Amino acid sequence: MSSDPSVTVHRLRPDASEDCEAFARIREEALPFILMTGEALAHDLLHSPPEAHYEPLLARVDGEAVGSAQVGLVHDSPQPGQAYLNIYVRPSHEGRGAGTALVRAAEKRLREVGARDVYSWVLDTPANRAFAERRGYRPGRSAHFLRLDLTEGSLPPLQSAPPGVEVIPGTDFVSDPRPLFALDAETMADEPSDIDYELTDYESWLRGTWNHPLTSKELTSVVLVEGRPAAFTMVRTNSGTRYGTMMTGTARAYRGRGLAKLAKNDSLHRARAAGFTEALTGNDDGNGPMLAINKWFGYEICGTEVHHVRAFG
């Protein structure tokens, strides 16, 4: 896939465990704010819907794995042709052609599957932004990565649920997670984003979210109001001591009552009790309510990305 003989780019296969692990290590080094493992990547490859055209790419320089790209169509958007291309190269190997080769291979593939607009998250550094803009990508909205040290004992006290409200773990939904799917779909539709999402495929959600190898049903917290799911925080963990919230939200009818904060507080306290030492999350810069909640918990911004877009002519 590359014209430079010292740089090679190839597609990952779910059965290529060494390549999947290499991809995960690159992401961990270049973007240590999002949990990823080789097992999780293989799962995503196996269970991604065909219409998503999901295709992770791995770049090697002189045989060494140094760059990664996540490539595909946003299949759950009502707008056809929306695509994504997110590239990360090991910091010690930037400037050696891996990023350029990945862009070239990824854009070729996206054109083949009908992409119209390609969105890319770019780390907010002068070098990364210049790399994207030289290739025709225009900057837009920003998003922040946030981190909380769970070893410092600085969590706000565990809150008691008000009358008629109950907080339960995600494991209570193992036999029937559909209510959580409905809650996730409603909150995702209202997330600030350049792309509209419509989460409608329950079976795909089961495979890609609920039964994902990193999803922790035990540490996921759900708030019930008079027995109905009203707010939640969905959690992922790795095999070590890192914990991440992938979505926290409240159904529209229950907003403004502090229920998302109640869910996240419950989950964070249980995570710390279970031995997790680091909590990670991310928020769009325009998501003021969630940024305020995370600031209340003590999260601090540890990185920023800028969403770029390129329209294919």
Results as ranks from 00 to 15, higher is better:
Ala105Ile: 01
Ala105Tyr: 00
Ala105Trp: 00
Ala106Lys: 00
Ala106Pro: 00
Ala106Thr: 03
Lys108Phe: 12
Leu110Ile: 04
Leu110Gln: 00
Leu110Tyr: 03
Val113Leu: 03
Gly114Arg: 04
Gly114His: 01
Gly114Asp: 02
Gly114Met: 01
Ala115Phe: 09
Ala115Leu: 10
Arg116Glu: 07
Arg116Met: 07
Arg116Tyr: 07
Arg116Gln: 09
Asp117Pro: 03
Tyr119Trp: 14
Tyr119Lys: 07
Trp121Tyr: 11
Trp121Glu: 02
Leu123Glu: 09
Asp124His: 12
Thr125Tyr: 15
Thr125Phe: 14
Pro126Ile: 01
Ala130Ile: 05
Phe131Asn: 01
Ala132Arg: 01
Ala132Gln: 03
Arg134Pro: 01
Arg135Trp: 06
Arg135Met: 08
Gly136Phe: 07
Tyr137Glu: 00
Arg138Trp: 04
Pro139Gln: 08
Gly140Cys: 09
Arg141Thr: 14
Arg141His: 13
Ser142Glu: 12
Ser142Phe: 09
Leu146Thr: 08
Arg147Trp: 08
Asp149Tyr: 14
Asp149Val: 14
Asp149Leu: 09
Leu150Ala: 06
Leu150Glu: 03
Thr151Glu: 06
Thr151Lys: 06
Gly153Asn: 10
Ser154His: 14
Ser154Asp: 13
Leu155Thr: 05
Leu155Glu: 03
Leu155His: 06
Pro157Tyr: 11
Leu158Phe: 14
Gln159Leu: 13
Gln159Ile: 09
Gln159Trp: 09
Ser160Met: 05
Ser160His: 10
Ala161Lys: 02
Ala161Ile: 05
Pro162Gln: 12
Pro163Asn: 12
Val165Lys: 04
Glu166Ser: 12
Val167Ala: 01
Val167Trp: 00
Ile168Arg: 03
Ile168Ser: 02
Pro169Glu: 11
Pro169Tyr: 11
Pro169Ser: 13
Asp172Met: 04
Val174Cys: 12
Val174Ala: 15
Ser175Gln: 11
Leu180Thr: 08
Phe181Cys: 07
Phe181Pro: 00
Leu183Cys: 09
Asp184His: 15
Ala185Met: 11
Glu186Lys: 08
Glu186Tyr: 06
Glu186Arg: 09
Thr187Asp: 03
Thr187Trp: 01
Ala189Gly: 14
Ala189Ser: 15
Ala189Ile: 14
Asp190Phe: 09
Glu191Lys: 12
Ser193Pro: 00
Ser193Leu: 03
Asp194Gly: 15
Ile195Gly: 06
Glu198Lys: 12
Leu199Cys: 14
Leu199Gly: 10
Asp201Phe: 04
Ser204Val: 09
Ser204Met: 05
Ser204Gly: 07
Trp205Cys: 04
Trp205Asp: 01
Leu206Arg: 15
Arg207Val: 01
Gly208Phe: 04
Gly208Leu: 12
Thr209Glu: 02
Trp210Tyr: 13
Trp210Phe: 14
Trp210Thr: 01
His212Asn: 10
Pro213Ser: 09
